[in-house]
Design a protein around this nucleic acid. Structure first.
Length: 285
DNA sequence: AATTATTTCAACCGCCAGGGG
DNA sequence: TCCCCTGGCGGTTGAAATAAT
């Protein structure tokens, strides 16, 4: 018996999402949280498969996403991480808060790859291209003995045999470049702030999944409505203006939002979140 | 202005891993 | 232990946007 498709192919819409669909999905997720994706389209009134909904949410609609091109520092970080992790985009994305694996993968394929090639660096091995050519030449003589030693899996990280103290990137760039990278990261305040959370569960995502005490998300019982009780939202999700990437909004837009001061953080009301998402969606069209 | 080539990136596809029955 | 389901991942595609002719 073959594997069941992720969704009933009949009557399932494909292709670009419409504003209406986005709205429905956002509404549903904000109301119910992320639960069983397979059930989402039905419950949200969408003619999409659950997988498509999950992808749309994680890659495009999630409120904690950063938009726009990667900064220099982020790009450098991606290159460095790629040298260590290879094409493990999700692992790389986990180190760049607000960025998705898809976004990083696309940016790698369209920008970074070309940049590295231009610089004479092999985007796969992160070795200088001429060195690569030489290595290939010599390896054709020297059998494949190095193959077994060259890469070792260590806790999900690929290291070359000469990699105990340095990465391929470091091999071809030098430790000065590393300090430059560090400098550039330190100079990029937003990135630095983000990186401080690097080994923490992502702020929004983690709490996004956590349904408030006493609520059940997926079994369809006793879900909170916004009107009933939103008090958990600031406490549990701790949505801050900057967690949402509100930097993109102008003062007027921000002033129209209903915010609450919570200690050193400005927390958004539910109305404000909906308003923001509306503005965000408008801005993306 | 029209046509063609190239680039970008959102979305899809197929596969895999992990969890539960 | 096996089977099924779900979520997640990485590779690929193709429509839209942009640049070049």
């Amino acid at each position: 018996m073959g594997r069941q498709p992720c969704c009933d192919k009949l009557g399932v819409k494909k292709g670009p999402w419409t504003a209406e669909e986005d709205k429905k999905l956002i509404n549903f997720i904000l109301t119910n949280g992320q639960c069983c994706w397979r059930a989402v389209p039905k419950l949200a009134g969408l003619r999409r498969c659950g997988k498509s909904c999950r992808l749309r949410w994680t890659n495009y609609l999630r409120p904690d996403l950063k938009r726009g091109l990667l900064s220099e520092a982020e790009e450098q970080l991606v290159i460095d991480l790629h040298a260590r992790l290879g094409n493990r985009w999700s692992k790389i994305a986990a180190r760049l808060p607000g960025r998705t694996d898809n976004e990083i993968k696309n940016h790698w394929n369209t920008h970074i790859k070309k940049k590295l090639l231009k610089m004479g660096i092999d985007p796969v091995t992160h070795e200088p291209l001429n060195k690569e050519a030489k290595a290939e030449e010599s390896s054709s003589h020297a059998d494949h003995s190095a193959d077994n030693q060259n890469t070792t899996e260590n806790d999900g990280i690929v290291n070359s045999s000469e990699d105990n103290s340095s990465t391929p990137t470091e091999n071809c760039s030098s430790t000065t470049d590393d300090s430059n990278l560090l400098d550039s990261i330190c100079n990029d305040e937003s990135l630095l702030t983000s990186l401080l959370w690097m080994d923490e569960p992502p702020l929004v995502d983690a709490s996004w999944n956590s349904v408030p005490a006493g609520e059940t998300a997926c079994n369809g019982t006793s879900l909170p409505s916004w009107e009933d009780d939103c008090a958990w939202l600031p406490d549990c999700q701790d949505f801050g203006i900057h967690d949402f990437g509100f930097d993109c909004l102008n003062d007027i837009e921000l002033n129209t939002m209903n915010t609450l001061e919570m200690g050193d953080k400005t927390v958004l009301s539910v109305d404000a979140i909906f308003l923001y998402l509306g503005i965000l969606l408008e801005g993306r069209r």
